[in-house]
Every structure is written in structure tokens, then in C-alpha cells.
Amino acid sequence: SPRLALTPEQFISRIMEAEPPQIYLMEELKKPFTESSMMMSLTNLADKELVLMISWAKKIPGFMELSLSDQIHLLKCCWLEILMLGLMWRSVDHPGKLIFSPDFKLNRDEGQCVEGIMEIFDMLLAATSRFRELKLQREEYVCLKAMILLNSNLCNTTPQTAEEVESRAKLLRLLDSVIDALVWAISKLGLSSQQQTLRLGHLTMLLSHIRHVSNKGMDHLSTMKRKNVVLVYDLLLEMLDANTSSSS
């Protein structure tokens, strides 16, 4: 089947429209935080964001044409990366702060109350300052997010059945469309072609840092759950278990 009939410009406007609405924690924050109160707020917000992330993914052109098992595997594999990239985007103009939501902003040092989270906060802040340095554009941000989703499970399994082979071919074509869209977004910045190529490289290299901090975050959340520091339930529990079961 021909590649998506969308031009890069049309593709970008479609994924810009797919952007989830800004959500709020909508909780009375009792400060100073305790380890469990901070983890409770972080997981409550994450659970709400996951619901919005799934409806976001369904609006990515071509995602619903993939096999249902591919859709599930992709989302299971990248959900924390997607949440973290959204956090970085919201925090990009607030050096030293993590804007989890407009009513839930944390300074780096507030993470001290949760064992093991400072290392993750520092990685998130470092990646965010890199995006600030690069002056990441919203069009580039939405392309990177779609790339994370579509790229997440590409190298975890080899397709066996004919359906899996067909779905993987669709996935690769979809990934081409997202890369074309990112290249198009970069071409609008008035850079030389060599600078455009370098920028594409720098942006995609950041994806490996996002995967790394997501893996650290997944381990940390599993530890917090195992130690009963926080009760993880519902969709967040499903997505966490999906990762811990596959990794263990």
C-alpha cells in the first residue's frame, strides 16, 4: 500500500492536533512532601496522563492500522519515555524545575525526600537543558514523541507470522513519515543543509538519553511499589508490570 498520503506538513498538523490537553494534579499538596506523599502525587498524575497518552496514540496517523498486538507492545514499551518527554517539554523554560503539571511543580532539591529519585531528576533536568540549548520547536517535539512511540518496539522482537511481518512493514513506513516530518520541521528553521543534518542527529541522539532515564525511572517505580512506599493500581500498574515482567 502506498505510504501515507499525507505530506510532511499535513502529518505534522495531524500530530499537533493529537496533542493531549494540559492536565492538572487537582490535589491539595501537603508540604513539606514525604516520600509517600510525593510518590502518591507522581503516580496519580502518571495514571491520568496514561489515559490521555493512549487517546493521543490513536490519533497518530496510521497507528490504528497497525495490528492490535503491535499497538499494545509499542505503548507498553515506551509509555514512561512519552511521559518524560512531555515533562521535559513543559519544563523547558523553567531551568532547575520539573513542571509535572501547572499545579505540581518541583524544584530539584524537593526530590531529596524520595530515596533514589534525585539521580532521575538530575537526568531529566540535564536532558531538559539540552532541549533548551537546542531551542527545541513544538513541531520537532511532537515528531520526536511520535518517533519514540513508533520506534520503541522495533528491535525487541522479530516478526514471525505474516500479520506481524505486514504490521512491521506498515510501522516502518509510518516511521519514515515521521522522520520526513521532522526533517521538514527542521528545514523551516533557516539553517544550512549541513546544520539541518547535524540538528537531526542531535535531536535523535537525545532519544537514547530518554530511553535511559525511562529505564531508570521504571526500576525506581518498581522498587517504590515493591517496598510499598506507594500503592500502584489500575492502568499504571498494568503498564509497570508489563515492563517489569518482560524485563525480569
Partner: peptide, 13 residues
Amino acid sequence: HTKLLQLLTTKPE
């Protein structure tokens, strides 16, 4: 993946 499956397969609003 009950909740994930349910959210994936519900028709968009």
C-alpha cells in the same frame, strides 16, 4: 492488559 486493551479498542469520542 485489560485497561490498556479497553482504552485502545473503545471508539474515539
